[in-house]
Design a protein around this nucleic acid. Structure first.
Length: 846
RNA sequence: GCCGAAGUGGCGGAACCGGCAGACGCGGCGGACUUAAAAUCCGCUGGGGGUAACCUCGUCCGGGUUCAAAUCCCGGCUUCGGCACCA
């Protein structure tokens, strides 16, 4: 009879559903939100879009996060780990148009399927906290919050040049990507349109959003947000227009500059083509040319205003402005390199010290006047490119009374003088714009306002919320939002005067949903408000958030903004939502491209689960590489992980078995007696426990798994020997299972219970156990191996007692044959003891 | 162009503080078990040289600091991500 036949084989597909059912029964996945005694741990992972199937990328995000949840529970934390679905958005609508299925039905069916898939991975989500954003229970609170924002002046409607995607309608600036300006979701090219739209005033929080104190976020995300906000310090300078035959002059022409120190070098001005004063300032003889340029600029905004190194274009208006510091008349131009949306849409051009202005001046033959010079440069040294560097000791030149001052001092003195003459002041400018939240789509939260011919914009009163999205709309036709033609929805009495009025047909950006959803998890059924403040006080902020870095300046920025705004509205007390953020990498298709159904490179996890079991898939995803790295999908190596779990199974359930093939099977390693073997086993187990604990805490799951494999390999050497099945062995198996439990929860629980049954104990769960403690004495070693280097190269190694002092160690080293041979009679010039980690003998070469 | 991350065996990757480069796994080679295969188990596996003990080269490239560099500094190259004339 073969040894193998003594135990049942490891059969994950048989074990896993049983363990999952058992966990549900025991409720191990549930936090007690009202427990104030145990420490709380709010673990959040970005909720998925219900596209229909979980692919391997969802597993990559979720299974390590689930391991964190289980690890925390084993440490006694009251762990809240909810999940939901980001259920509004375009794909549902597209499916509706294509297949004539209502978006709600399509979405709910997908959610049903994804819940089932989440269960097969063994994720311990708290399902009774689930939220689905397309249900009125959730989105009515988007509307309620919108009303509050509107009342507080944080939401407003305005005409603006906005980004327009032919599929999604208007987009927020954050949602337009790449040099070719395409839509973040559908990839279509985006154009500019002038439209009246709803905005949220994120710019009010620009400075506060730059402050990351108290939150532990990855540096790249902080940098991206900081750049996106784009704070620049400088000054506003007021130029006056000069009188001309065609206009009286005296208009204020305000510019923002970061370089007021170069004001004497301003030799012309440039307005954006859209600037309000263009028409008024244009001289009659320039009118034709200006009109032609404006026409061309308008056409080009759509496609062409992209390229940074594109040739500069522009035309002069035939009017001048007066430089406030020296009274000089300088010509006013328009050019599309000046953007209407940044600063004041007008600049003072200092060609000597700005690359763009230099290029423009060179092309059109405009004056270039140096006003900054490095220490070794003459005042009037000619320039063949703009001098923008900041050198130590540089000074102002050609700057009237300010000449000779260091640049930094010139900055301050010139601004002071402008302020004294009411011609300018210090100013700060930001790159970030207000968040455009209106979408011309059906499948989103209706914006709860009504347009009344007499009362104008009227918010729908809270008591009339939710404004329900009609579910019987007609999707055929132009692809325009069906709300626009749905009279049952559109026609409404004005809440203020009762007269006939029209409903807003725009819906909210789905990022509004995701800007506060984690607060709703705490009280998903609350009916008298969006957020249960007491629970937020107890559970907020989220202790750990996991998700992709692609949301750096979208979801992750909006969420911080919302939290601050909600605090200002008096709904919560905290001002930052996520204490700690981890961005896992992205799993790409085998071809290195983003996984997508259209590319046909999607890996279906169900297939792998069927073949290897969920535990193998979970462990393999963790073992592949660092979690923040991601990379192309490849199943190469999954067999190795599966083999490891099989070995754990064998070690735990068949310790006395001996495999054919090993000539030394059943013998103790050379030179070890029973007690030595037991010490070695305990040392390996407790040392592994020490590092594995650390690695779970640092989310270094790949090396965590590697260390468990090492421990299993070590134990395998003792399998079938006299110590197998003894106390040290059993302790090691117990530790191995406990360490494995968060990552491979089914097999560890199964083995745990089989061992209990065999020992006549009652069924329990490993997931109710506490994380074990390291036995320091067991993990300590009596001896230590020290590498010996000669001139930095390892030439020998020596085993010494652990507590040896440096002098003794040095004596032993120098006495070794190998060392004496290498030294050949020479005495080392220096002996380096690197804190006991090695000995380096430094000898002068002959 | 600017900002950020990264470059280590045939492959995924490890080396956390400057201290044994290549842990762990895949793949490959050899062996055990088997009538045979699969599965399982054991051993070897960075390049070059040597019968061997060993020697030597080696962490993108070129310099530097140091007793000692994958790790720190200077310069460059490549890949990936973000930004896009932001005054």
């Amino acid at each position: 009879m073969s040894d193998r036949a003594r135990i049942e084989r490891y059969q994950p597909t048989e074990i896993e559903p049983r363990r999952q059912a058992r966990w549900a029964e025991l409720g191990i996945d549930r936090a007690d939100l009202n427990d104030t005694i145990r420490p709380k741990y709010y673990l959040l992972t970005m909720y998925p879009y219900p596209s229909g199937d979980l692919h391997i990328g969802h597993w990559y995000i979720t299974t390590p996060t689930d391991a964190i949840a289980r690890f925390r529970r084993m440490h006694g934390y009251n762990t809240f780990y909810p999940i939901g679905f980001d259920a509004f958005g375009l794909p549902a609508e597209n499916a509706a148009i294509k297949n004539n299925v209502p978006p709600a039905a399509w979405t709910m069916k997908n959610i049903e399927n994804m819940r089932r898939q989440f269960r097969t991975m063994g994720a311990t989500f708290q399902w009774d906290a689930e939220i689905i954003t397309c249900l009125p229970d959730f989105y009515r609170w988007n509307q309620w919050i919108f009303n509050k924002l509107l009342a507080a002046g944080l939401a407003y409607r305005a005409m603006a040049p906005v980004d327009w995607c032919p599929n999604d309608g208007t987009l927020a600036r954050e949602q337009v990507e790449g040099t070719d300006r395409h839509c973040w979701r559908c990839g279509a090219l985006v154009e500019k349109r002038d439209l009246e739209q709803w905005f949220l005033r994120i710019t009010n929080y620009a400075d506060e959003l730059l402050d990351f104190t108290g939150i532990d976020w990855p540096e790249p995300i902080r940098v991206q947000q900081t750049n996106w906000i784009g704070r620049s310090e400088g000054a506003e300078v007021v130029f006056k227009t000069a009188p001309d035959p065609h206009q009286p002059g005296g208009d204020d022409l305000v510019v923002f500059t970061t370089r007021p120190d170069t004001l004497f070098g301003a030799t012309f001005m440039v307005l954006a083509p859209e600037h309000a004063l263009v028409e008024r300032l244009t001289a009659p003889e320039r009118a034709t040319e200006v009109a032609a340029y404006l026409h061309q600029a308008r056409r080009q905004t759509e496609i062409e205003r992209l390229s940074t190194d594109r040739e500069k274009t522009g035309v002069a208006l035939g009017a001048d402005a007066i430089n406030p510091v020296n009274g000089e008349r300088i010509p006013i131009w328009i050019a599309d390199y000046v953007l209407s949306g940044y600063g004041t849409g007008a600049i003072m051009a200092v060609p000597a010290h700005d690359e763009r202005d230099f290029a423009f001046a060179t092309k059109f033959g405009l004056t270039i006047r140096r006003v900054i010079a490095a220490p070794d440069t003459a005042d009037d040294a000619p320039l063949d490119e703009a001098y923008v560097a900041h050198a130590a000791g540089e000074r102002l030149v050609n700057s009237g009374p300010f000449s000779g001052l260091p640049a930094a001092e010139g900055f301050a003195r010139i601004v002071d003088r402008l302020a004294a003459e009411a011609a300018g002041q210090r100013a700060v400018n930001y790159r970030i714009r207000d968040w455009l939240v209106s979408r011309q789509r059906y499948w989103g939260t209706p914006i709860p306002v009504v347009y009344c011919p007499t009362d104008g914009i009227v918010p729908v009163p809270d008591v009339d919320l939710p404004v329900l999205l009609p579910d019987d709309v007609d999707f055929k036709g132009s692809g325009e939002s069906p709300l626009k033609t749905d009279h049952a929805f559109l026609d409404v009495a004005c809440p203020r005067c009762g007269g006939p009025a029209r409903r807003e047909t725009d819906t909210m950006d789905t990022f509004v949903d995701s800007s506060w959803y984690w607060y709703r998890y705490l009280s998903p059924d609350k009916t008298d408000g969006p957020i249960e403040r007491d629970l937020v006080d107890r559970w907020g902020p989220v202790d750990q958030y996991t998700g992709g870095a692609e949301h750096a300046v979208m979801h992750l920025l909006y969420s911080r903004f919302f939290t601050k705004a909600l605090a200002d509205l008096g709904l919560i007390n905290e001002r930052e939502p996520f204490k700690r953020l981890f961005n896992q990498g992205q799993i790409l298709g085998a071809d290195g491209e983003r996984m997508s159904k259209s590319r046909g490179n999607v890996q279906d996890p169900d297939e792998l689960v069927q073949r290897y079991g969920a535990d193998t898939v979970r462990l393999f995803l963790m073992f592949m590489g660092p979690w923040d790295q991601g990379g192309p999908w490849s199943p190469t190596g999954i067999g190795g992980v599966h083999r490891f779990l099989n070995r754990v199974w064998t070690l735990a359930l068949d310790p006395h078995g001996r495999e054919g093939g090993d000539p030394d099977a059943g013998k103790l390693p050379a030179g070890e007696d029973g007690p030595a073997a037991e010490r070695a086993i305990r040392m390996a187990a407790h040392r592994t426990l020490r590092v594995v604990t650390d690695e779970y805490e640092g989310f270094r799951f790949n090396t965590m798994v590697a260390h468990l494999m090492e421990l299993a390999n070590t134990l395998f050497r003792y399998r079938g020997s006299d110590v197998a099945g003894g106390p040290a062995w059993n302790e090691a198996i117990r530790l191995l299972l406990l360490m494995l439990a968060p990552a491979a929860p089914h097999i560890s629980d199964e083995i745990w219970n089989r061992l209990r049954t065999a020992a006549g104990q009652a069924e329990s769960t490993i997931h109710g156990e506490s994380w074990p403690e390291v036995d320091q004495a067991a993990s300590a070693s009596e001896t230590r191996e020290v590498p010996i280097q000669v001139n930095g190269k390892v030439r020998d190694r020596i085993t010494v007692p652990a507590g040896i002092d440096e002098a003794d160690l040095e004596r032993l080293v120098l006495a070794r044959d190998r060392v004496r041979e290498l030294l050949a009679g020479r005495t080392p010039d220096r002996v380096i003891h690197a804190g006991g980690r090695l000995v380096n003998l430094v000898v002068r070469e002959a």
